[in-house]
Simulated scan of single mutants.
Amino acid sequence: MSGLDSGGAARGKSRFDDIYVQPDPRAYFTRLAPLDYEIPHHAQPVFRRLAAERAAYGAGRAEGLVVLDLCCSYGINAALLNHDVTLAELYERYTSDTARRMSTQELAAWDREFYAERRRPDALRVYGLDIAAPAVRYAREAGLLDAGFTDDLERVPPGPELRAALPEVGLITLTGGGSYITERTFTALLDAARGPVWVSAFVLRTVSYEPVARRLAAYGLRTTVDTSRTYPQRRFTDEQERRYAIEAVRGLGGDPSGREEAGRFHSVLYDSRPGPAR
């Protein structure tokens, strides 16, 4: 997740821009730990399952699949997808006294060894896209991303490097970035894609995904969602943010009782695959 505003940021939601422009992820985990930011934990088994299904849909070989993680920040989703590690372990690791004493270069070297030892045999190639350049750079240095891009697709078309990489992508993932990117980003990505691209997006209930779903339909992707199942994202930072979320959910026809009213943002999972329009 990147909290940097790229044109689609929700007004009333707290901003975390400062933790995405640090040279490494220690501030990210330190700041988000008290808020119980947990959506990557919920996404971990979902993305693993969908990656296997997408690989079977295509050539039938998982090693040929490339995943593009939008708003990838420090490569957290890539870490959880490709390595035997949990989000709780990452919180413990990056807020530890050991990590606190390291320089960024030492931390990156420590991470490269850590992730190499825990890399899964079914690991996939993962590309990351985020306008927070320091976060993407670190994810590359730690060995979490096979390629990283910082193109702001809300404002400009893909650059030559990203455009050259997009035909390889078979699955696009998103956790937490739905408040900051719009259908413009998905249009830019799918215009340059080749072959069927699936999209799996965890989107806050405070945000309408309908404009994105309509745009994906223009590329032959049918979007499904189970609105009865929600995934807690994080605690609210304050009462003002809680009131904003409750009002936003109600404004979209949702019921915040037991979810946002209880003190947390909640997301729903949108799954887009090739298929007939609804």
Score class of each variant (00 low, 15 high):
6 S>D: 10
222 R>W: 10
178 G>K: 02
37 Y>S: 01
103 S>E: 12
5 D>E: 13
132 A>S: 08
264 R>S: 04
41 H>C: 12
64 G>M: 10
14 S>A: 15
110 W>H: 15
172 I>G: 03
24 D>N: 09
70 L>P: 00
254 G>M: 05
167 P>S: 00
129 L>W: 06
5 D>F: 08
71 C>M: 05
73 S>E: 10
81 L>A: 12
49 R>F: 11
121 P>K: 01
22 Q>T: 04
39 I>F: 09
43 A>C: 14
46 V>P: 08
82 N>F: 07
64 G>Q: 15
139 A>C: 01
45 P>C: 09
230 T>D: 12
25 P>Q: 04
145 L>A: 08
214 R>E: 14
147 A>D: 08
106 E>T: 13
65 L>M: 13
46 V>F: 11
12 G>Y: 09
85 V>G: 13
229 R>G: 07
44 Q>M: 14
263 G>M: 03
259 R>K: 14
144 L>E: 00
127 Y>I: 01
50 L>F: 08
131 I>E: 04
212 V>P: 05
271 D>K: 06
109 A>I: 09
70 L>E: 03
171 L>A: 05
236 F>P: 07
39 I>R: 05
146 D>R: 04
73 S>F: 08
102 M>E: 07
191 D>L: 03
278 R>V: 11
242 R>E: 13
192 A>M: 02
90 L>M: 12
59 A>K: 12
163 R>T: 00
83 H>E: 04
73 S>P: 09
92 E>R: 14
88 A>I: 06
74 Y>L: 07
226 D>T: 03
122 D>I: 01
85 V>H: 14
100 R>A: 15
33 A>K: 13
159 G>V: 00
157 P>L: 03
218 A>M: 11
152 D>A: 02
7 G>H: 08
11 R>M: 13
13 K>F: 14
214 R>N: 07
187 T>H: 08
102 M>S: 07
50 L>N: 07
246 I>T: 15
120 R>M: 15
249 V>W: 11
91 Y>C: 08
259 R>A: 14
73 S>A: 14
100 R>T: 13
10 A>F: 10
12 G>W: 07
67 V>E: 09
183 E>C: 03
126 V>Y: 01
103 S>D: 06
41 H>E: 10
30 T>L: 12
37 Y>T: 04
250 R>S: 04
254 G>C: 00
61 R>G: 11
258 G>M: 13
135 A>C: 03
111 D>R: 13
5 D>K: 10
127 Y>N: 07
27 A>R: 13
166 L>S: 07
99 A>Y: 08
182 T>L: 09
220 G>N: 06
63 E>D: 15
88 A>G: 13
202 F>Y: 01
78 A>M: 09
108 A>E: 14
121 P>L: 05
96 S>G: 06
187 T>G: 02
102 M>N: 10
270 Y>S: 05
131 I>H: 04
230 T>C: 11
98 T>W: 15
210 E>G: 00
102 M>F: 12
110 W>F: 15
62 A>Q: 09
37 Y>I: 00
242 R>G: 10
